[in-house]
Amino acid sequence: MYGHCLRYAGNVEEAQDVLQDGFIKVFEKISSLKDANALEGWMSRIFINLALSYYRKKKSGPDWVEMEPLQEVLSEENDIPNNDLDPKLVLKQIQSLPEKYRLVLNAYAIDGLSHKEIADLLETTESNTKSILSRARKMMRDWLNEKDNKK
């Protein structure tokens, strides 16, 4: 769960705050868990929701202005280098993304939430999350390409 927090948070301190609040929420709600086998998924969802809410409620949080979609992103999908990635480097790159890019990329690309769920949690539109996701992917792809070129 700490990994979830690190991905969504911009730094370690914020990650610890989210982790702490997340576990408290888990202990408070543990009685509502009906299937013990679903504990991990249930906890993950709590931490994800909490992380998204955390940044949504932050006064200095992201400004969810509608963004134009990037049409050229999908055509470059096959150009991604297929190398083994060091998770610490990926984490560092994700944390360096602008906040709204980081949140949407984590929620959609890694944790598998739908655009509708993300839009609801972040109180914005699906088209906006899609546009943000495209830009986030492009930034990550650029980073991977740049990393590959250096090799």
């Binding site: 700490y2 990994g3 690190l6 991905r7 370690v12 610890q16 982790l19 999908l74 999908e77 096959n78 991604i80 297929n82 083994d84 990635l85 060091d86 998770p87 610490k88 990926v90 984490l91 994700i94 990329l105 959609y108 690309a109 890694i110 598998g112 739908s114 992917r137 990550m140 792809r141 991977l144």
Partner: peptide, 24 residues
């Protein structure tokens, strides 16, 4: 979870499969 996710998503996701950060 939506199907047919781009490779970039799978690549990032798989990079965290074995990721176990140490708790503070």
């Amino acid at each position: 979870m939506e199907k047919n996710r781009p490779n970039i998503d799978q690549l990032i996701q798989s990079s965290f499969d074995a990721f176990e950060p140490q708790l503070p």
